[in-house]
Amino acid sequence: MLTQVGPRERRKERLDRGLKVRTEGIYALSSGKEALYLLAPRLTLILGLLILPLLMPNLYWQRVICITGVFGLLSLAFDFLANYVGLICLGGALFMGVGGYITGILNSLFGMPLVATIPAATVVGAVFSTVLLSPCFPLRGIYFAIVTLMYPLAASRIIEALDIFGGTEGMADLDTLPNIWFASYSIIPVLLVSLFALRRLVTEDIGLVLRGLKDNDQAAKASGISITRYKAYSTFIASAIGCFTGAYLVHLYGWAGISLFALDFSILPIAASVIGGMGTLVGPVLGAFILIPLTELLRELGTLRIVFYSLLLAGFIVFNPEGLMTYAQRKYHQFEHWVEV
């Protein structure tokens, strides 16, 4: 790719580093140095996230990291569904609520300990959410987004009106995670494992089928692929991640209530994905790690935060629509130099 700059007879030439072979995700490694070239960014991410809780000055900020991890997972699930399966999912709040309420009910009514409620809520909640969303699988376009947005709104009204599961008060006095170290060092490994697992998945054959669905569901049907089935699989994966975060948050606070269905959980992941870079999977996670702590820093501004948010988003969409991670990856894998013409 060439860029013409100025009146001088020079141009900027951009070349792939030799290591990268012609197509996505294939590299030719021949030395330790080259292996390090690929490993360095991954190690930085893993070590960075693992060290992060240690650097926090107080309990408040350690909790912020935990909540950031929650949003990181939700953003990851959003990015996976939106950019690898073609389902625009506003269901963060739905998954959150379903996972949260299931763990709340299991904990308060049946007295199950949190080592049992979190996995149970993850699996049962994912099945439940997938079944709830299954009517939209054969449809294309915006229906999935609308339905995922509708369920959490409906759910909070239903809980309010029928006064079930604690009604507007919610369910209090649930088990809490033993301590803040346990809290942060459970969410961050889950985040890392989910991230790398999803990155692996989308390059596997089944992942290619999902990406095929996104690009062209008609062609996928003509190739003998049941789009309903594969949309169900991927919704299950995303909702399992979402339900886990719901269950986790409930045990972090020791409380489950209607605010689990708050639209923040649906909308913030989109913002994080735009900032971090759609379709990179790691980008949205980093986006969450920028956006959520920033929100906390700006807490004093109150509702003015929304204005700041909008400006930040608009700025990214105008000046860097590809997102941070896409930009960074390009800079890392290519080098530019000036050549005389």
Binding site: D205, I206, V209, G212, D215, Q218, A219, S223
Partner: peptide, 23 residues
Amino acid sequence: FQIMRPYHSLSAFKNLIVPLYSP
């Protein structure tokens, strides 16, 4: 298809993985 429907974000040979993955 008359109007071609490739999986445009995948490389050409990865396009064939989808039918090769069919039951």
